[in-house]
Design a protein around this nucleic acid. Structure first.
Lengths: 241, 241
DNA sequence: AAGTGGTCTAGACCACCTT
DNA sequence: AGGTGGTCTAGACCACTTT
């Protein structure tokens, strides 16, 4: 099945093949992979080598392992996955679950920055979502999202009210687009008139401006998101290690 | 040497013991641990079990492994370590190395928040450092740091000019205090008069306010740091995965 | 009882660095 | 050549979940 030594270690080759099959949708999120013994036989490697590949995929969040049950492809509906991509927390570090109110959902054309960050041609079709996210009963985040239409065919037919709060789960279940990782660039900016109106604060008030590019399992950018956050009651929490 | 099954896996016990010896300074930063064979014999475990312990310590950044050379305790003077704790980057993601100008360095007494975050009694002795950090030729970060005197004996004798730019390396070499991880809480705030003067911008301008608590290898808080950053040319970058 | 992942061992061989 | 970490194997047994 697989060349013996090659240039890459065997377990890296196995890992890459497994990830490829996950990205291709062979085991959709929420389903279980074959057990270790079967996979090891299939690739013609030992138990230990296959485990090393699966363990790396586990530490990267690509699969979840359950002793006695099996190895599953994770979905985004679990809390643990949700908070991987939602870092706003109360000053004491406790999480707060946001709700969302969609304000705008329409087709648009990619501007220069949007095209560059999503690796599209300028003017390419995108879907634009604007929503206000509520934390602890107060409007706290004014958000604008751009999605390439090519990766989300038919999304322009979605009514404003049919867009769910947990978008990454929606991308996955509805369009087969799985977010693998994201890169954020955070700055402080003054609230615009729109920010001020939607977040009920003064124009010019300091906001946390987060620009996020989310990539799928093949490292292609699939979502561009601008979040403008009032930080009087919540902050952006990061652990460095 | 070690109980066989116990409640914890063997490799976890080995890992904990190794970390304890690192934290105790048995192998100071920059030095090499004994080789795998020796350590395995010492703990009475197999090659594979010892490797599993060392590999976890590696992925947590506690040791660095070099094929053909050995396993070393990392220092903070390497670039890779520095940027683990310095997240401000240019908009395109390229790093920029900061320099520092110390403005204040004096003894003080812990206020309520300082005492709580550093787990001290209110009024306990701390050392306070204020400095301006320069990025790309411009004053960009106004920083205030609190250190518990109990963990940094004699630091009050340090002249302002003798405080180096890379403090974590200094803590380690001079006081045997090794930073293991840190937790940051980021908000947006308006520039105070002091911020405005030190960073050469208008009072009320939006700043990124970062509150960091740094912990040593035993998880005890050893530094409290407030960084107030102008974000016109640099932003705070995070990768989520 | 049967099936899954988790731990542990013993030994072989490979890749890299230093001498 | 000798020492280091890196890979790979084959097999045993343990812990957990389901039937």
């Amino acid at each position: 099945m697989i060349q013996k030594p090659a240039f890459n270690p065997l377990y890296q080759q196995v890992k890459a093949r497994l990830l490829g099959r996950i990205a291709a949708g062979e085991w959709p999120p929420g389903t279980f992979l074959p057990c270790e013994t079967v996979l090891a036989r299939e690739y013609g490697v030992s138990h230990g080598t296959l485990r090393k590949a699966l363990n790396e995929l586990t530490s990267e969040g690509r699969v979840q392992r359950f002793q006695g049950k099996g190895t599953a492809v994770p979905t985004f509906d679990s809390d643990v996955h949700f908070y991987r991509y939602f870092l706003m927390k109360k000053p004491d570090g406790t999480p707060d679950y946001p709700s969302s109110q969609v304000v705008v959902a329409r087709k648009a054309r990619a501007g220069n920055e949007t095209a560059r960050l999503l690796k599209l041609s300028p003017g390419a079709g995108v879907f634009q979502i604007e929503r206000v996210r509520v934390l602890g009963g107060r409007a706290a985040i004014n958000e604008r999202i751009y999605l390439p239409l090519a990766r989300f065919p038919g999304i322009e037919g979605c009514a404003t009210a049919s867009l769910p709060n947990t978008l990454y789960d929606f991308y996955q279940k509805r369009f087969g687009v799985t977010i693998g990782r994201a890169v954020e660039y955070v700055t402080a900016e003054a609230a615009t008139a729109t920010d001020a109106k939607r977040l009920e604060l003064a124009e010019g008030a300091p906001l946390l401006a987060i620009r996020r590019v989310a990539l799928d399992l093949r490292e292609a950018p699939v979502e561009l998101r601008y979040s403008r956050c009032a930080t009087s009651r919540h902050g952006y929490t990061v652990e460095l290690r």
